[in-house]
Computed example of a mutant assay.
Amino acid sequence: MDILSQNTLFGIIISLITFEIGLLIYKKTKFPLFNPLLIAIILVISILLIFDIDIDTYNKGGEFINMFLGPATIVLAVPLYKQLQLLKKYLFPILIGILIGSSIGISSVILLANIFGMEEIVTLSLLSKSVTTPIGIEITNQLGGITPITVLAIVISGIFGAVIGPVLFKIFKISNKVAIGISLGTASHAVGTTKALEFGETEGAMSSLAIGITGIMTVFLAPVCYNLLSLILK
């Protein structure tokens, strides 16, 4: 096993295989909690623990996958381009919706962190939980947070949003395609967008738009909201 794990391709192959297994299970069951990303994470962690493989060893290949996160996010602009007329029609409500969603997402982290007495560095690491990983990591680095915590928070928020989102749409009888896409993209970034694409091309396009705008807004809103609420809550 050591010979295999020391190979750079080990991290890549394990990641791809576990994700494909997760994808297969989700397609067979259609059960929301069986999210392919969540299953892949659990399987990868299990393999590393069972065979006592160091995380740095896994990252020799895993880091190559991280390199494609940025380009993969940009590719989401393709369905958006196809829905350009719809974007122009609803531009103002879309921007307002994303602004409110981003502000609430950041503010809720600060308020809950204050209630539970979290350390400042942990709070700073959680502020960018609702943006896509490349943007979230950069925001955390600028704020002086802990990157691994940010990545974990982003993954959890993405999966949680993708699972809970459709349930909330049914409860509150939300059927507007733009609203569904924007809410999923704003709250749960790329993972939410994969769920939005299951609803339809319009939902996927709006969700991919929300990813970019939420990221940009969070860059400015995170430090402002943190400093403002910190003063109020003191």
Rank of each mutant, 00 (worst) to 15 (best):
E119A: 14
K27H: 11
I47S: 01
L233M: 14
G158F: 01
V151C: 08
I21W: 02
A40Q: 05
K129P: 00
Y81W: 11
I135A: 04
P166S: 06
I213S: 04
N114M: 07
L24W: 13
I25T: 10
P36R: 06
L4H: 00
T132M: 00
P134R: 07
K129M: 07
L111E: 07
N176A: 09
I53E: 03
S157F: 12
S175R: 14
L33E: 08
E198R: 08
I211D: 08
F160V: 15
A77G: 01
T73N: 05
L112T: 13
I164C: 09
L143N: 04
M118E: 09
I174G: 06
G61M: 07
Y226F: 15
G204E: 07
I25V: 14
P166G: 02
L84Q: 11
L16H: 05
I156N: 02
E120H: 11
V155W: 06
I174V: 15
G22K: 09
G11R: 04
I115Q: 12
I45A: 14
T140R: 04
K177E: 14
C225R: 00
F64I: 15
L37C: 08
S46V: 12
F116C: 06
I211Y: 08
K173V: 09
P79N: 08
S102C: 13
L43G: 05
I39W: 05
S128C: 05
I216Q: 01
S188T: 10
A162P: 04
K129L: 06
M1Y: 10
Q83M: 11
L233T: 04
A205Q: 02
I41L: 13
S157W: 00
H189Q: 11
V131T: 15
I135P: 08
I41N: 01
I65P: 00
A205P: 04
I65L: 13
I14V: 14
L91T: 12
I180K: 14
A210T: 03
I42F: 13
S208V: 06
L9C: 07
F64Y: 15
V151E: 03
T133E: 07
L76I: 08
E63H: 13
I156W: 03
P32K: 06
N114E: 14
I50C: 01
L38G: 13
E198M: 11
Y58R: 01
I94G: 03
P166Q: 01
I94R: 00
D2C: 06
F160C: 09
S183L: 08
K129R: 15
G70N: 03
G165N: 08
I115F: 13
I100C: 09
I213H: 01
L124N: 07
A222E: 05
I164M: 14
N66P: 01
G204M: 04
V224E: 09
S46E: 08
L152V: 15
L9Q: 11
N141P: 03
K173S: 15
L91P: 00
F19C: 07
S46R: 05
N114D: 15
I135Q: 03
L112S: 13
N141E: 15
I41P: 01
G161Y: 02
K89R: 13
L168H: 08
K89Y: 11
E203R: 06
I53A: 02
G144V: 10
I42N: 09
G62D: 01
I14Q: 00
L99A: 13
V151T: 12
A196N: 00
L184F: 01
A153Q: 01
L184M: 12
S208N: 03
Q142N: 15
T8K: 12
S46K: 07
